[in-house]
Amino acid sequence: MPVAPTRRRFVKAALLATLAPVLARAADTPAAAGGFGPQSTAEEVTRGLDLAGRTAVVTGCNSGIGFEIMRVLALRGAHVIGTARTAEKGREACGRVQGRATPAVLELTDFDSVVACATRIERMDVPVDMLVCNAGIVLGEHQQVDGLEKQFVVNHLGHFLLTHRLLDRVREAPQGRVVVLGSGDHRRAPPGGIQFDSLSGEGWHARGYSHSKLANGLFSLELARRLRGTRATSNCVSPGHVRTNILRNVGNGYGKNARTVHQGAATPCYVAAHPALAGASGGFYRDFEPAEQSEHQTDAAMAARLWAVSEALTRAYLG
Rank of each mutant, 00 (worst) to 15 (best):
297 Q>W: 13
149 E>A: 12
159 H>L: 09
30 P>V: 04
201 G>H: 03
21 P>M: 11
99 G>C: 14
279 G>I: 12
187 R>Y: 07
30 P>E: 04
58 V>P: 04
147 G>N: 09
235 N>H: 06
103 P>Y: 14
226 R>D: 00
206 A>W: 01
307 W>N: 12
233 T>M: 07
194 I>R: 00
158 G>F: 04
306 L>P: 06
311 E>N: 11
90 G>V: 03
14 A>Q: 13
182 G>F: 02
37 G>S: 10
102 T>G: 12
4 A>S: 15
243 R>S: 06
152 F>W: 04
201 G>W: 02
142 H>I: 03
269 C>F: 06
61 C>K: 02
301 A>F: 08
271 V>Y: 07
263 Q>Y: 10
66 G>I: 03
63 S>T: 14
28 D>E: 15
68 E>H: 08
74 A>N: 03
174 P>Y: 01
277 L>F: 12
3 V>G: 01
132 V>Y: 10
31 A>M: 02
159 H>Q: 10
135 A>E: 06
69 I>W: 05
201 G>K: 05
317 Y>A: 06
222 E>N: 12
227 L>H: 10
64 G>C: 02
297 Q>L: 11
68 E>N: 09
111 F>P: 04
67 F>S: 11
129 D>H: 15
105 V>G: 07
8 R>M: 12
279 G>Y: 10
61 C>V: 15
274 H>P: 02
142 H>R: 10
253 G>K: 03
309 V>S: 11
140 G>L: 05
127 P>W: 07
237 V>Y: 01
206 A>F: 05
73 L>T: 08
276 A>V: 15
294 S>Q: 13
257 N>D: 03
28 D>G: 15
183 S>K: 00
92 E>W: 05
221 L>Y: 12
211 H>L: 12
4 A>L: 13
171 R>L: 14
29 T>W: 13
288 F>K: 02
233 T>G: 09
314 T>M: 07
143 Q>N: 04
89 K>V: 05
180 V>A: 10
229 G>Y: 06
62 N>A: 08
254 Y>K: 00
108 L>W: 08
69 I>A: 09
267 T>V: 05
84 A>M: 01
